[in-house]
Design a protein around this nucleic acid. Structure first.
Length: 1032
RNA sequence: GCCCGGGUGGUGGAACUGGUAUACACGCAAGACUUAAAAUUUUGUGGCCUAUGGCCAUGCGGGUUCGAUUCCCGCCCCGGGCACCA
């Protein structure tokens, strides 16, 4: 008998397949396509890992089987080459990353080929190849042009060790995902990709896919969609006492202003105005009190208008807010007639107010504004001597203004007061009446404003808290069982809209806090706190109360300042987060939560709102080894963009034109990011540098290559600078499956014809660690490319699976430091690729973690040797029982492969081989069929044996065997139970019917003994399997 | 805390839709071959007992059923995802 020599066999067939190009694929319209995709390896010096082998073998089995079933199969591979391991190695050794990558690619290629995977190597890609990343850059430019990329200064996660900005998702439990080092907050200008614009579709379209359910769940978790309600609370800078003035018109009738003074005193944040036929609501209301006791007003209205009180007449000025970013220079002046000092703001551009040209350049250039807002066109105009010239806007006679809901009197204000609105997000509007305080995130934009205009009394304390929060690392802010901290904004009160709407109830005003348990980046950055029905609010309120208690003596606190819990849902607990019947809720008492949510929302004019925990994608890294971002900064272009001629007013935007470029000279991205212009001469190549280390200032090493950085602007020819940040590692892998389809194309990233044939990917397998981020990012890119008409499908993958991790022999994760890493090369050398492949498929359920056991590979080589040995036992006679057994085995293997149950597929083939061994013979015909079903698992040895049987063509080009409808075995084993316990079994002829089987069972001595003298109540017969005799 | 998985021999793990629990493989033990070892091969291998028979075992406790690893209720433990997410 010939000895099984895996080395000889495997090498021989690998060479043959390569020589024949056996697995190279071409489009073939006559054949149905099947696209198998595995995550390409991430370049690292360690080479192939046994974990790669698991996933690649599984899809190799699928690919090979699909080919045998007549599909035109694409199974490509490449290298994910940009990224930190390579860069770090370059920093350490000074070797050019290009050289490192070349070596790594060679290693991977050799290792993958030695496993006999049926990859189409002619399509191999490498993300760091300029021919590849040219298209990564090109796709980025499409994002940019369509306004999906924007530069934003924001606190980013900064890894102290890696000296790199991390995306939120790269920070795991507050530490760097890669190095485990400390993460700090740092302000940095970053390119962002607007993935949140796709949040809904990324969420909903999961239903169209056949991803494993747990993968869908992970994707949904990450997007974190939650539906709730926006409710606006009024904020007032000055406390309005309980001894309120009577309402003027509580039932909300429209009145004309006839008495300006009355209007000034009684207008409130909920009032509605009608001016020249147009309705406005009030966003912010400022009351100024003058020395003589009179008031004047400034109202920020909906639609971007400002209504300003003209002190000297019975009229108001209506102007339009400016919605662009104006350059503002600050100065202080004293307004001569009055003793008040106003903040003075000069605006550089002042051409468009109501579409009129208001003043001529050079004459009276500046505007003044007595608010602190940044983005408002001022109300007045002064000349160079800072003397007031005129108001802008339209003068509206007071009696032309109709007002609804004039209610609250503010005549007892001790000083000027501001009323503004703050939106909170809640999923529990039914608990609104229980809102006993408001919490804003320390970073909330309103706070800065309120600090600036001095409406917060305890400014020092608040500022201290804000700066403490900023210093905190994420890990502290997330720490478990953290004691909640916060500071009350003294001088600010909120008015619960439920009570405001309901009329004069006791609890009108509630305190406002800042606390870091509220996150600025989620929802509106503000919450209504309902301690009676929310755990976090309860914890915070308890904390504040406890603090107050200790200060009671010193600070003269009274119990009135303590936060009171109002239960609005019937329960006997202080804290109850469930649903139920409402109490203490005015006219909603007795209503069920579910209904109350809708009704209360309606009552207070809440707005239904869906929010996400998904954030936009920080897309720049201050690193060398990545794709350069193909943008140039040009000051000349910035000026031209800044010129209003190039601005597109909101009103002139084409409806639903998100994806249309609206300006001939500047594209949407260039308008959005003034000064940044695209460079379409791609690839935008990575220059060679001397040092690969990021700088301490956080700039990429590219910034030091002056020759590279300084360029002429591709748009106007002026001096300009290149962007020196590079793309994150995720970029190249966000579209690679598309490049495989047409990897040599130098005109486009892939031709539409070919895309139409091959997309979507039918089956995509990869590691579990990529089922949130990579999957989401790549789906996002694909959807965007679909929207701009460059790919034919809106989802990239039909089916996505993930293989479980292979742990070391001790059950721990394989790592160099533990010394439990298994090198694939050693296993192939010792046992051969076929045994290795079989073992990895046999070791356990594909999607579960399992630990490596080298002894297990021995079992596989024994199995292969048995199959090899069968060659000696061939006969020409078919035997019926082997026939039947094989038939069942084919069916089982076929179904198991489709269901990724590779372990039981192999087990059933082992059972078959053991069966044949006992028979000691098998017909050549059956043997060949068996080789076919084994061939996807063990491609080399089956090829060898196939040729040994006298065949000339490769087994991998043959057809997958069909199985017959399951023939019933002639002889069946029937189990006899008495009262559900097995007592006997016998073999019967399959023709027997139930009563005959029953008779037979009742003739068994053992069975009769167990029945004894008890009466037989009934018998249950399961066809071909068992009969149960029930007595009792 | 919420949401997914999972818990079966010494080990990795089987068991379709409620119908013979422990397939297959590793390991272990004994035998054969061998001077010997390795390799190979044969047999055995869940536990317990009063052993040709019987009882108990699928994380724990209940329930439904003629019959439950499978379905229901209540717990415990392990792994993963999300997480002051309002």
């Amino acid at each position: 008998m010939k000895k099984y020599d895996h080395k000889k066999i495997e090498k021989k067939h690998q060479q043959n397949w390569e020589k024949d190009g056996a697995y190279n694929t071409k489009e073939d319209k006559n054949k149905q396509k099947y696209y198998c995709l595995v995550e390409f390896p991430y370049a690292s010096g360690e080479g192939l890992h046994v974990g790669h082998v698991r996933g690649y073998t599984a899809l190799d089995i699928i690919a090979r089987k699909k080919r045998m079933e007549g599909f035109n199969v694409l199974y490509p591979i490449g290298l994910d080459a940009f990224g930190l391991p390579t860069e770090n190695y370059a920093i350490k050794t000074g070797i050019n990353p290009k050289i490192i990558i070349r070596d790594i690619a060679n290693t991977f290629r050799r290792q993958l080929k030695s496993l006999g995977f049926s990859f189409d190597w002619s399509r191999e890609i490498n993300t760091s190849d300029p021919e590849y990343y040219k298209w990564t850059q090109w796709i980025f430019l499409q994002f940019f042009k369509h306004g999906f990329a924007y530069k934003k200064k924001m606190p980013i996660n900064w890894c102290v060790d890696c000296k790199i900005g991390l995306a939120n998702e790269e920070v795991i439990n507050g530490v760097c995902e890669r190095c485990g080092g400390q993460v700090e907050k740092k302000e940095k200008e970053q390119w962002m990709l607007a993935i949140t614009k796709y949040a809904d579709r990324l969420y909903d379209d999961l239903d169209k896919t056949e991803f494993l359910e747990k993968i869908k769940v992970q994707q949904r978790n990450w997007i974190g969609r939650s539906s709730g309600v926006l409710i606006s609370f009024a904020l007032a800078t000055t406390q309005i006492g309980a001894d309120k003035k009577p309402q003027i018109n509580a039932d909300g009738k429209i009145v004309l202003i006839t008495n300006v003074q009355e209007f000034r005193e009684n207008v409130n944040i909920d009032s509605k105005l009608k001016i020249e036929g147009r309705e406005f609501s009030i966003k912010e209301l400022i009351k100024f009190k003058l020395d003589d006791g009179s008031f004047y007003l400034k109202l920020f209205l909906s639609g971007g208008y400002v209504l300003a009180d003209d002190l000297n007449s019975n009229s108001f000025i209506l102007v339009k807010e400016k919605d662009t970013n104006l350059k503002i220079e600050e100065d202080d002046i004293t307004f001569e007639n009055k003793k008040y000092s106003f903040s003075y703001k000069a605006h550089a551009i002042a051409e468009e107010v109501f579409g009129e040209e208001i003043f001529k350049k050079g004459e009276s250039e500046t505007f003044w504004d007595y608010t602190s807002g940044n983005n408002y066109l001022s109300l007045g105009i002064v000349d160079k001597n800072k003397k007031r010239l005129d108001f802008l806007g339209k003068t509206i006679k007071a009696d032309k203004i109709e007002v609804t809901n004039l209610r609250e009197s503010a005549s007892n204000l001790r000083s000027s007061a501001t009323f503004t609105k703050v939106n909170v997000f809640t999923t529990r509007p039914d608990t609104l009446f229980g809102a006993t305080y408001l919490v804003l995130a320390p970073e909330h934009e309103l706070i800065r404003k309120m600090l600036d205009d001095r409406s917060i009394e305890n400014k020092k304390e608040v500022e201290k808290y804000i700066s403490e929060t900023a210093k905190k690392k994420d890990i502290d802010r997330m720490a478990e069982n953290k004691i909640k901290t916060g500071v009350e904004l003294k001088g600010i009160k909120a008015i619960n809209p439920a009570y405001r709407q309901a009329g004069p109830l006791n609890k009108k005003e509630i305190p406002v806090f800042i606390a870091d348990y509220v996150l600025d980046s989620y929802g509106t950055g503000a919450i209504m706190a309902v301690p009676a029905h929310d755990e976090r609010d309860y914890a915070f309120a308890s904390q504040i109360n406890a603090d107050n208690k200790t200060q009671m003596g010193a600070d003269n606190k009274t119990s009135a300042d303590r936060i009171e819990i109002i239960k609005v849902i019937e329960s006997d607990q202080n804290l109850y987060t469930g649903y139920g019947k409402l109490i203490n809720s005015g006219k909603f008492n007795g209503m069920e939560s579910e209904k109350a949510m809708k009704e209360i929302t309606k009552f207070v004019g809440g707005e239904l709102k869906t929010i996400y925990s998904l954030r936009d994608w920080i897309f720049s890294r201050q690193r060398y080894w990545g794709e350069p971002i193909p943008l140039v900064f040009c000051n000349e272009c910035k000026k031209r963009v800044g010129n209003s001629k190039f601005q597109i007013p909101n009103s002139k935007k084409i409806p639903n034109s998100k994806l249309q470029i609206q300006n001939q000279e500047f594209n949407k991205g260039e308008l959005l990011n003034p000064g940044w212009v695209i460079d379409e001469k791609l690839p935008f190549e990575l220059p060679d540098v001397k040092k690969y280390e990021p700088t301490d200032t956080g700039e990429s090493p590219l910034a030091s290559v002056k020759k590279w950085v300084n360029v002429k602007c591709p748009k106007c020819g002026a001096d300009a600078k290149r962007e020196t940040d590079t793309m994150p590692n995720w970029a190249g892998s966000s579209w690679y499956w598309l490049r495989y389809i047409d990897s040599k194309n130098d005109k486009e990233f892939a031709s539409m014809d070919k895309l139409k044939y091959w997309t979507p990917v039918d089956w995509y397998n990869g590691g579990m660690e990529h089922t949130t981020l990579h999957l989401l990012y790549s789906r996002f890119w694909h959807k965007f490319l679909f929207d701009i008409g460059l790919v034919p499908t809106d989802e990239p993958y039909i089916k996505r699976t993930s293989h479980g991790m292979i742990l070391g022999e001790g059950g721990e994760k394989m790592s160099k430091s533990k010394g439990n890493v298994i090198n694939p090369d050693d296993i192939i050398e010792k046992f051969g690729a076929d045994s290795f492949r079989l073992y990895e498929m046999f070791m356990g359920p594909f999607d579960q973690h399992t630990s490596w056991n080298t002894n297990g590979v021995v079992g596989m080589i024994r199995f292969i040797e048995k199959v090899y040995g069968l060659l000696e036992k061939l006969t020409n006679n078919e035997s019926e029982d082997v026939d039947n057994f094989l038939n069942k085995t084919i069916k089982k293997v076929e179904e198991d492969i489709e269901n990724m149950k590779f372990n039981t597929a192999i087990s059933s083939m082992m059972v078959f081989v053991n069966f044949v061994y006992n028979k000691n013979k098998i017909s050549k015909n059956n043997y060949k069929k068996f080789l076919k079903i084994l061939s996807p698992f063990a491609p080399h040895v089956t090829e060898e044996l196939w040729l040994e049987t006298g065949e000339k063509e490769s087994i991998h080009k043959t057809k997958w065997p069909e199985y017959d409808k399951i023939k019933e075995d002639k002889n069946l084993t029937i189990v006899v139970q008495v009262n559900g316990k097995i007592r006997d079994k016998f073999i019967i002829d399959s023709n027997l019917d139930e009563s005959q089987i029953k008779d037979k069972a009742l003739s068994s001595g053992i069975v009769l003994r167990w029945i004894g003298d008890k009466e037989i109540k009934k018998t249950i017969y399961v066809r071909g399997k068992l009969i149960n005799i029930v007595t009792i």
